[in-house]
Structure formats: structure tokens, C-alpha cells
Design a protein around this nucleic acid. Sequence first.
DNA 1: GCGATCCTGGCC
DNA 2: GGCCAGGATCGC
Length: 275
Amino acid sequence: MPELPEVETIRRSLAHVVDVKIKTLRLSRLAPVETTTPTRVRRELSGAKLMAWQRWGKYLLMETDRGVQLVLHLGMSGQLRFFAKEAPPAPKHTHLELHLSDGALLRFVDARRFGTLSLSWGEERRDNPFLARLGPDYFDPKVTPKVFVGRCRRHPKLSLKAMALNQGVAAGLGNIYACEALYRAELDPRRLVGATKDQELAAFLKQSRATLAEGIQRGGVSMRDYFDGLGHRGVMKEFLRVYDREGTPALDGRGLVHRIVQNARSTFFVPEVQQ
DNA sequence: GCGATCCTGGCC
DNA sequence: GGCCAGGATCGC
């Protein structure tokens, strides 16, 4: 569900939830705890003080004063919500609750359980197997066009769509923003990386950043499940040019949107515009 | 590389 | 009842 802009919007909405201790922690039996154990999560985080919220691609990182970080991935349907006081009763599929020392509550809910909870220590965070495989964030300043092109070139046989969704190349694009960025860069999602010029890959990077930045500015895309940490919806859906517009003109009127299936995911594109 | 797979819920 | 969904890993 949430792609980079949605996770960033959540991060920003929780920026004030710091300098407070975790008084108690509740983990459900079905909590998607990965690469560690519920016992360890409880032991490491109980009594820890929240220091900062970071983001890497679609991962949200909760830093504590103990050096341990909670690494959260929201999968397709995950939601993280903050309640300053008087939280409503826990809905179905509540997997984690952090009761804070000032009476506030952080609640992680994820019906489909595609999300994950894991832990990480250390600056580089490479001890966490999820983060270890992750390419640099799309907004990482170290990702120059040259660096990006080099990373793409490791996968000459991937389609541009598959490359865009590959979090090892660069982290943050999901199905919606991948379609939008390819449209803006005027690149055919079926084309192979190996058949794409450096300059075109660089254009894709540039348009990806522009699309992601607009997504953040508009508070993300709220299809159905997505809300920020305070329960607000984003309005980016109204500004998507091709995603979910099969059979209708692109939002900017440059042609009819087609839908195809690539790697079992829908791709929306305009063949006349994207070569 | 690609399809199957994890899971629940909403919509037709 | 069947299909589809904002993700990512795992086999083949």
C-alpha cells in the first residue's frame, strides 16, 4: 500500500511523537514480527524512549535512546496511528500497541499481514536483513544520475516497470508512482533496461523524484486504507495522470490510458506517449 | 526473470 | 463466488 510519499507523510505526522517513553507494549499473537522474536521486541523496546522517526524507501524507522530501532513496513494494508488520548477500541488486526508514558498510544493495524516488524542496531542498519537488501532511497543525495544509471545497468533484462519496482535498485517506488514516473518520463514500461539509453534512465530518475515529491506535497494517495499517523487522508489520487484510469484519457489529455499486466501487477500507460 | 504465494476485505 | 488490491519473497 503505502509507497515512499505515504510513508514520508506518516513520518512527518509523527515527528512530534518523541522524547517520550514506551510504558507498555502489546504485541498480538499474529503480529508479523520478522527476523527476531516477539519476546525480544518486547524486551528491547519496553521502557525505551522514542528519539526520532526516519524513513528509508517504504520502511519507517523508530529510533530509541537504546540504539535499537523498530523497523516497520506497512505492506499493502498497514496503518500506523497516533492517539494523544482516549484511543478508540482496538480494531480487528491490531498487531502492535505502544502505550506511552504521557498517556498517548501508537497503534499498528494490518489486516493482510503483508507488513513486517523487525529490529535494527547500528548506524548503517545493515544488520537488518530487509534493510541490507535495500538500495538507496530515491531522495538520497548520493544517487546522482550516474550512480542511478549504474545501478540500473546491473539488471539489463528487467523491464523498466520491473526495474522501477525493484527496491534493490533504488527504494521507494510502488505500483502507483512507478506508472506515473514512467508516463512522465515518456518511457514504455515494457522496454528492457538493456535497450534504454543512459539519458533516458536519468530522465526516469528525475521524473520519479518529481512524482514522489508531488505525492509528499499532496499528502499521499488515499485509495481506501491509507491515512497518515493522525488519520488524515492525502489528495494525490486526484492528480494521478494514468494510474487507475484505464479506458479514459490521461489526466493531462495526452492519450487514452491502457492497462496491461506485468509480473502480475497492473501497469497503466499511454502507448502513443511512451516509447 | 516469472509465477505462485503469503493474507483479508471490498467490490462486481 | 470470483477477482482484484498500494508489497516482496520464494521457488523454479
